[in-house]
């Protein structure tokens, strides 16, 4: 059961990798990396249950947090070209 889930997740990772490779636009690729991080979270959970030791579930939660923060950082970088203190642009100045 969990083995099938793990294999399915690996196949999904491969498909995400294909989208990363082909992805015509930048947003396809950013989304693919985000999905890849989600697969990582799920895979850690499934591996825990597969090995009969679901102690690492909280670690997969941490991965979810890292994934979220990383995606925010990438998108913020797209938008503002800077990470720290973003200078406030006047409205309509795009």
């Amino acid at each position: 059961m969990f083995a099938i889930a793990a294999i399915a997740l690996l196949i999904a990772m491969f498909l995400g990798l294909a989208r990363l490779f082909k992805g015509p636009t930048l947003y396809d690729r950013a989304l693919a990396v985000n999905a890849f991080g989600t697969f990582t979270v799920l895979f850690i959970g499934v591996m825990g249950f597969l090995n009969q030791r679901p102690d690492f579930l909280d670690i997969s939660l941490l991965y979810a947090l890292i994934n979220f923060a990383g995606t925010i950082a990438i998108l913020k970088f797209f938008r503002y070209r800077a990470l720290g203190d973003v200078p406030q642009k006047p409205e309509g100045d795009q």
Binding site: L20, F21, L26, R29, A32, T40, I44, I59
Partner: peptide, 23 residues
């Protein structure tokens, strides 16, 4: 790939895979 943005995204995915191997 020659498109460097895709390379950066792929290296992030590579790190996640390495992390999975460590897990």
């Amino acid at each position: 790939i020659r498109h460097l943005f895709a390379v950066v995204m792929l290296s992030g995915a590579f790190s996640l895979l390495a992390a999975l191997l460590f897990v």
